[in-house]
Design a protein around this nucleic acid. Structure first.
Lengths: 237, 237
DNA sequence: CGGTCCATTGACATCTTTCAAGGCTTGTGG
DNA sequence: CCACAAGCCTTGAAAGATGTCAATGGACCG
């Protein structure tokens, strides 16, 4: 499904006033917003779904700088001034747009938002460094295992059939995030499926019969567990 | 020169009390500090030199997650909990160690430090994303040109012979940062020297006869200029 | 002045990308 | 409800880029 993009490809999803807190935006997959003209004081808080922060690089190539999950915060200042940098909805998403200076109004309101933004930047920085290390020093297959294990720990839960989780990113999104090309990534996914590491009943749904095996498929499995624990999540096999 | 590492390879450079502001550490090239046991409230402010935040990955491999320049700020929370993650002095460096809660004491002191740390995180995040994009979607040669142009804009100045700048990172540091291997990187450096893009009178010193040509060697040249301008630096050819 | 790192270079192996074709999903309209 | 169209995904073979291994040379410190 291709969402028609109007004008400067600005996202035009439905929105409603969330009162003092800002404006709540509802985007469908594929809708995007150019960050070029976003104010430095505008803060986006992801409430649901999954988004990417991405930019076109050279001819026909794209790079996903960040993948945003619920709870993540994004400001214009967090990302480099690359041309045509945008925020794109990878799946149906809900985003709260807040203006930093306006938020709260009272003293405690401002203070808490300053802290939120700082913590959000630290969290994204941690993740950015983590994936940079994975991309740089792991094989493509280990790299993909890292991403799958990360999504499993974030979005999954135990079911009778195994540890089930959504895969909100398309093959192309994953490839652009891991700096691979979609063809290579597809081959690796096939290999994982052949080795029964994961099963994919649909294109956006995955089941790991043995979550520990999936986590063990990446050299950074323990680090992923630590990060999940820091978020207050625990993976029980 | 190999610096003797004691105990848990903790850096033991000279230090002096910088009063209320914290402790000033002076490190020589190669000295390092394990981040594992660093308190979450400890903040490092780089005053001079150049450091890396790096971690060993698998057998004999290392990755440089961040390169820190004067003005940069680092907290434990900024980086993922990889085993044996450390801060290493790439050149002689001066680092101010501050405890966040202690600093200032007065209300304004705390507030200003909160803001510093937030801005520092945003700045490092910007750089991390930028280099992730470069590594992912640029050729190895463009990637190296990006790093050299970045260092030139940060550390260089116009001289009679051209635009001269220090290269505080060793070949291996650069390779580990760009996710290349030192051999490949060395070959590319040789190619740059052959094409007269840069001249290196010593191992740690470079001169670009034409800084614009160096900046034009990377597709992200304009973005580097924008970032330099945001730091208040201007490159005059 | 010798030991240690660090840097350079060549030949070869390997992994990933590229290009192209075909099948599968999903949404749309008759 | 079915047929169609547009993306998205999958797969193969060949090409290209970077990595690996090994040997040599050079710089710096004690």
């Amino acid at each position: 499904m291709m969402v028609p993009i109007v004008g400067s490809s600005e996202a035009e999803g439905s929105q409603d006033d969330a009162g003092e807190a800002g404006v709540r935006l509802r985007w469908r997959r594929g809708q995007s917003l150019l960050l070029r003209d976003i104010d430095d004081d505008t803060v986006f808080l992801v409430e649901g779904g999954c988004l990417t922060c991405d930019a076109p690089v050279a001819a026909g190539r794209r790079h996903v700088l960040l993948v945003l999950f619920p709870g993540d915060v994004l400001c214009r200042r967090f990302v480099p001034p690359l041309p045509d940098l945008q925020m794109t909805s990878a799946a149906s998403s809900v985003v709260l747009r807040v203006r930093r200076r306006e938020s709260g109004g009272g003293k405690s309101g401002v203070q808490s938002h300053v802290l939120d933004v700082a913590a959000g930047a630290a969290q994204l920085l941690t993740r950015s460094c983590f994936y940079a290390t994975a991309r740089g020093r792991l094989s493509a297959e280990e790299c993909l295992a890292t991403l799958l294990a990360d999504m499993a720990l974030r979005l999954g839960r135990t079911t009778p059939g195994g540890y089930a989780f959504d895969v909100p990113l398309s093959r192309r999104d994953m490839a652009d995030y891991l700096a691979l090309n979609p063809d290579s990534l597809s081959r690796m996914m096939s290999r994982f499926k052949q080795s029964h590491l994961i099963v994919m009943p649909t294109r956006t749904r995955a089941i790991a019969r043995d979550i520990d095996a999936l986590i063990a498929a990446t050299p950074f499995g323990e680090t992923l567990r630590d990060l999940a624990a820091a978020r207050g999540q625990v993976a029980q096999a």
